[in-house]
Write a protein that binds this DNA or RNA. Structure first.
Lengths: 208, 208
DNA sequence: TGGCTTTTTTACCATTTGGTCAAGTTACGA
DNA sequence: TCGTAACTTGACCAAATGGTAAAAAAGCCA
């Protein structure tokens, strides 16, 4: 798949290519996550990236492709914490670690979280296939693992899918609804409190 | 405030006024919740409402006003379940009932939930004041109540604000991320499972 | 029915916006 | 250093979109 064949499609990304594509994607993440796909304009992205609009269209075939590129790149890193759960580990600790990793991602990458949330809220028009082919198998696999832990009596009985949904919901909430949380918790250390609360929540739920 | 004064601003909404304003708001809810504020077009709303675009602008001064009207109307009903918690009731049951009411709202009014989510994700540009003046006092009041229950030992110790956040997050997730949940749970009765799961989750968390 | 008000529509407008194109300009290997 | 390929830009477009104006139509009431 590495070219060398005559009609290879991807010759080789030059240094400038890599630098500018990255700039564009960084800018697009900022703008898309803040204004949504339709709310964002190429001019905004261009300005944020420090490039001209036609120049941006030199690197990407259109607004759509930038967005799709972002979503695809995101999907993988977004699911990493779930993949990192060790089936051989101590169940309760593994799951709590997963919660904390997800919460940490919300703090470190709120823009990515909002980009994702936006896409899903609008019916996932550009991610339908990925949900089916990437997310679903991973969820099923995780569900089986958790069911196994339940069957062995190592954690209290729970529906594994809804458990995962609730972990997603409670952790991403702090990124996606940051504007609201900010207003309601001004002064408090939000993530400190969230971390302690979620630890308690899932420990009480899952302790056999 | 009921007019009768000479320079009264609101003469009286005619039958046609009421009917058409309702049609427009219904249509706008549908369109805004699906495409977001900037993603929605007046033509879409007009078409959905069965009216012409200029006719819509006869009833509302602009796209913005329609959106704001929706958000304001929504805010109240959205917070009703929280207001309905009875400080004199049995704490655990009151809170569980709150969870179920919120979940029920997610099922019955997913469009409203998404409209709200959209607004917050984008930084609440049209709701900032309301969050401060309506939501925050209500949250504080509820927090005091819950803290009281904790102090009396009637529920297990929890941070009341994060508890409420997690209830919002876990219940609204089923509306806001419906597209994702749908794909991942095809075949299953989602709300049946969610209801049972959340019952378990918060019962285990809160039981003293 | 006649006359007034309310409602609706037809025809436009100005701006925004995604995208194109051809003419530069720059980088880089021979 | 020179030529070619890679990159950048200014000038444009066509379509979409929020919004307006004025005339036409529909209600409504005496």
């Amino acid at each position: 798949m590495q070219d060398s064949s005559p009609a290879a499609e991807t010759p080789k990304p030059s240094r400038i290519q890599r630098r500018n594509r990255k700039r564009i994607l960084d800018a697009a993440l900022e703008v898309f996550s803040q204004y949504g796909f339709r709310g964002a304009t190429l001019d905004q992205i261009a300005s944020e990236a420090g490039l001209s609009k036609p120049n941006i269209l030199y690197y990407f075939s259109g607004k759509e492709e930038i967005h799709v590129t972002l979503l695809n790149a995101l999907m993988d890193t977004w699911l990493d914490p779930l993949r990192e759960i060790d089936p051989e580990g101590e169940p309760l600790e593994e799951l709590l670690q997963y919660v904390h990793r997800k919460l940490e991602m919300s703090r470190e990458f709120p823009r990515e979280s909002r980009l994702f949330a936006n896409e899903i809220i609008h019916g996932a028009p550009r991610m339908g296939p990925d949900l089916e082919t990437v997310l679903k198998p991973l969820l099923e696999q995780s569900a089986v693992m958790i069911d196994g832990w339940v069957a062995e009596g190592r954690i209290a009985p729970v529906d594994p899918r809804h458990l995962i949904f609730s972990i997603w919901a409670t952790t991403q909430h702090y990124a996606d609804f940051e504007a609201q949380v900010q207003v309601l918790m001004e002064g408090h250390d939000v993530h400190e409190g969230a971390s302690a609360y979620l630890e308690t929540l899932y420990r009480r739920l899952l302790t056999p």
